[in-house]
Each structure stands twice: as C-alpha cells, then as structure tokens.
Design a protein around this nucleic acid. Sequence first.
DNA 1: TACATAAGAATAG
DNA 2: CTATTCTTATGTA
Length: 164
Amino acid sequence: MFYTILDFPLGKIFLAKSEKGLSLASSLKNRNRFEEITEFFKRKSILLELQRKEFHREEKLFSQYFEGKKEDFTSLPLDFISGTPYQRKVWLETRKIPYGKTQTYKFIAEKLNHRGYRSIGQALSQNPLLIVIPCHRVLSSDGSIGGFTGGLDLKKFLLRLEKP
DNA sequence: TACATAAGAATAG
DNA sequence: CTATTCTTATGTA
C-alpha cells in the first residue's frame, strides 16, 4: 500500500492506494489524525510505503478540482479496505451524485429501500474517500447543511467550490 | 420559526 | 444489549 500527502487550500490530505485503486483520502485536520490512520493500517496488517510518483493521476485530479474545475472522480478505480456491504452501497450511491448537484439523506435512504435516514449519515461518517465520494453533496431534506465529521467548514468550502 | 422528542436502520463495543 | 451517528417527522409554543 502506497501513500502520499497532498496540500490543499484548507490543509493537507492523506492518500493511500493499492494495486487495485485508491483506498483512502482523508483530511489531516489535526496532528493525531495521521497517527490514527497509520494505526488503522497497522491493525489491518497493511504496510504503508511513502511513494509519491504512484499518485500522478490523483495529484492532477485533486489540484484541478481545487482550482474550481469540474472534475469527474467516478472513473478513478477504488479499493475499499474498510466498511460493511451496506456502507459500500451507500458510498457507491453517493458517488453517483454529479458535480455541482446535491441530494438528501432521505433520497439515498429510499434509493436503498430503507427508512433508516440516520444509518445513511452513519455510513457517510465512515466515508474513507473524501471528495472522491462526494459526501459533501448530501444535505438535509430541508436544504440545510447537515453535519460533517471532517468539519463543517470543509463541507461548506467544497460546496462553494462547485457552485459557480 | 424554533426547540424538544420519538422513530428509525445499521454499526461498534 | 447499549450507545452512537453527516436524519426526519411530529408536536408545542
């Protein structure tokens, strides 16, 4: 498993990928976040190796995205290393939301034939792929911003970035 | 409109 | 089983 760290307007972002695809994209909001991530891989007996040149494609995508360009991450290969089947379904469904559009937790819940609105939030809170899985495009049904584990300022920033 | 509460699905411990 | 979660619907003022 390779990893690298990218700079972006609100801080740094941790990327990890295997041979199959991208596994983790997480904001390094605080110092302990890096420790948490390395500890997570350690518990899974996955070795991490700093290897920047493996991330040419991702680096380009992210930098262009943060320049305000309409980037499509749906073609990027992924490799889930965590999450239950239900959570992965939620993530894949969230991933279908196009650039600049928003959906509601309710919509996704009904899409999966469930009434468990909160379980959608619970699943998204476990989202390992920031931006690639656009959890920031999911709002509350009344249009309010909802919550965001990675910090509400980050969610607002991403939404403003996509709204021309 | 603004809170308080209940209901609800799934997960971690 | 209990607590928790990036929710929603209903009741009350």
